[in-house]
């Protein structure tokens, strides 16, 4: 969104520009969504991507894992998936006469949980515990997950028969929720001309070492948020509580999430201070799945969020 560079504001080199650029070659015409996804990971949050099949959800996850140099695993959620299929099981080794724990696919730095709403709530909660705690408890033993640890979950909104939609409390665990949407004309034409992008994703070279990421995360979290900016975030959160378009407002945790996401967004833009623009840019991705529309009860409408922004003066 902030394509132009403010001469006085952008003094810092931006290591993520190359990552953004490379990912943009794989997922065509979705620069804003890619930037949001990376901001989400920088803010140490988990990501929920919700869209129809074939929109590039999995490709995006692949590309991010490759570019960030993260160890990647994918879990295809189905209705008969069991918690142990995620966390891992102990098997008896005849040679050593002892049980050995075989870690499940969750023991990876970036886990893609594909079609998370197909699994039963019990299985879902095994993943969600891992997301929240950064650890896994299996067979009475608690095991630390690698750091960094990210989950990108995908969900297909159209076919809800035989699925278990995530309850609100678990939606709250995801820092952001994205919709990729159809590519624009030019992007789609380029896609058709170039052929499948998934194969290309596998050819990407890592631009980052997995060990670098925590340092960048710390840097992003230290982005300066001045008092007026905190005021603005507070005004936004309060406005969601008073706005009749929503059934209920944002929680304090959501307010923290909003500020963290805005910090990461600002850092990505090469700034060491957060601006109201950053809050506005991440607000739909952070807030929509945490709010309920007063009409219909689904996610908050994008227009309502836009109207909300228009009702708050910039401090």
């Amino acid at each position: 969104m902030l394509k132009h560079t403010l001469s006085a504001l952008a003094g810092r080199p931006r290591p993520f520009d190359a990552i953004l650029e490379q990912a943009g070659r794989i997922i065509l015409g979705k620069d804003h969504e890619i930037r949001l996804a990376i901001a989400c990971l920088l803010a140490n949050g988990h990501l929920l991507i919700e869209d129809l099949p074939g929109m590039g959800k999995t490709t995006l996850s692949h590309a991010l894992a490759r570019l960030l140099g993260l160890q990647f695993s994918r879990i295809q959620f189905t209705s008969d998936l069991l918690p142990a299929d995620i966390t891992g099981v102990s098997i008896f080794e005849r040679d050593k006469s002892e049980f050995r724990f075989l870690p499940g696919p969750v023991f990876a730095q970036l886990v893609l949980a594909d079609e998370i709403n197909r699994a039963t709530p019990k299985t879902q909660s095994a993943l969600l515990e891992a997301m929240e705690e950064g650890q896994v408890t299996a067979e009475g033993q608690t095991r630390q997950l690698p750091t960094p640890f990210f989950v990108i979950a995908t969900q297909n909104p159209a076919h809800q028969i035989g699925t278990f939609p995530l309850p609100e409390s678990q939606l709250d665990r995801f820092l952001m929720r994205l919709e990729l949407g159809y590519p624009d004309r030019a992007a789609e034409r380029a896609l058709l001309a170039a052929g499948g992008q998934r194969a290309q994703a596998d050819k990407l070279m890592p631009l980052l070492n997995a060990n670098d990421l925590p340092a960048f995360q710390q840097e992003a979290a230290a982005t300066h948020a001045a008092d007026p900016l905190i005021d603005y975030v507070q005004a936004v959160v309060e406005a969601t509580r008073q706005n009749p378009a929503f059934q209920h407002g944002l929680s304090p945790r959501a307010g923290l999430a909003l500020l963290a996401a805005a910090r990461a967004w600002a850092w990505l833009a090469g700034r060491d201070m957060v601006l109201p623009d950053d809050v506005q840019a991440v607000l739909p991705a952070v807030a929509r799945h945490r709010l309920r529309s007063a009409q219909g009860g689904g996610y908050a409408q994008a227009e309502d969020i836009a109207a909300l922004v228009r009702s708050i003066a910039i401090p």
Binding site: L6, A8, L9, A226, P228, D272, M273, V274, L275, P276
Partner: peptide
């Protein structure tokens, strides 16, 4: 630029 730096920076 100057305003943003002064107010938010």
């Amino acid at each position: 630029d100057a305003y943003l730096l002064a107010r938010y920076g």
